[in-house]
């Protein structure tokens, strides 16, 4: 079977499995519910009196710290705990298909959660004159940012058979990646290190995208980070067969 066909088979299985339990719907409800609260209740939307969604998009890197590891924590850790990885890894599918399939399944779940936030732009468009260009750019950026976050979460899920450890590890690492920009500007940080840390900041690359400005550098950053963590995921699984 081709790599992509196997990957789509695994992705479909993961997507359907996520919504076979209440936890999946909880994940689906989390993003629209919390983002709406942050945007309309605690955010500056009504104070600024402008029809734009930048506040919503800027909250996404922080919401993803909680949400994306919750999506990925089960994907490998549960396979290992239940022993089903022995089944999956001995069926005639390539390792890269399995890793890609898990990622696409998780990405699909995140896309569904982002889809559920469409109530926000619809509401804002009803209240004012919303420019949909930046909104589309923002959602595009959110999918890229989310992809990198999910790949990191998948890698950590592959490292353990405990879902809680996978979630905590993923959330902690995403928090670090979101705080790197702050550390970059600290006085004690050497300038060269500051530049490196700033370039690795997940949130910093999302700032332009959240305004609907799509730059090749930001897109490439998220794609490279996604590919990097998916490769690490594959290596972890490969190494396990040698241990």
């Amino acid at each position: 079977m081709s790599t992509m066909r196997s990957a789509l088979l695994v992705a479909k299985r993961e997507f359907l499995a996520a919504f076979d339990a209440p936890a999946g719907y909880l994940v689906l409800a989390f993003l629209p519910a919390l983002s709406a609260v942050l945007f309309f209740v605690t955010g500056p939307f009504f104070a600024f009196d402008t029809a734009e969604l930048r506040g919503f998009f800027l909250s996404l890197p922080w919401l993803f710290v909680i949400l994306t590891p919750a999506i990925t924590m089960r994907l490998w850790a549960e396979e290992k705990r239940a022993g089903t990885e022995e089944l999956l890894l001995t069926w005639p599918m390539r390792l890269r298909s399995l890793v890609l399939g898990k990622f696409l399944g998780a990405w699909g779940i995140l896309a569904a959660a982002l889809f559920a936030t469409l109530g926000l732009p619809i509401t804002v468009a009803y209240l004012g004159d919303l420019d949909f260009g930046p909104v589309l750019g923002g959602y595009f950026g959110a999918l890229l940012l989310g992809g990198a976050c999910l790949a990191l979460g998948l890698f950590l899920s592959a490292c353990t058979d405990n879902q809680i450890v996978a979630w905590l590890g993923g959330a902690a690492m995403l928090l670090v990646f979101n705080l790197l920009g702050g550390a970059a500007t600290a006085e004690a940080t050497p300038p060269w290190l500051g530049r490196v840390l700033l370039e690795l900041d997940f949130g910093k690359h999302f700032e332009d995208l959240s305004r609907g400005v799509i730059s090749l550098a930001d897109v490439a950053f998220y794609l490279v980070m996604t590919a990097f963590f998916l490769a690490l995921n594959g290596l972890v699984l490969l190494r396990r067969s040698w241990s």
């Binding site: 196997s6 088979l9 499995a17 076979d20 239940a82 022993g83 089944l87």
Partner: peptide
């Protein structure tokens, strides 16, 4: 792998799936 069928020790299965769906998934794999 295409030439062997393997029943691992302790018989790990996707318990959330129906027998039919599990067999379809395994067959497509």
């Amino acid at each position: 792998r295409a030439r062997l069928g393997y029943l691992p020790e302790h018989n790990p299965l996707y318990l959330d799936m129906r027998v039919e769906d599990f067999l379809r998934f395994a067959a497509k794999a």
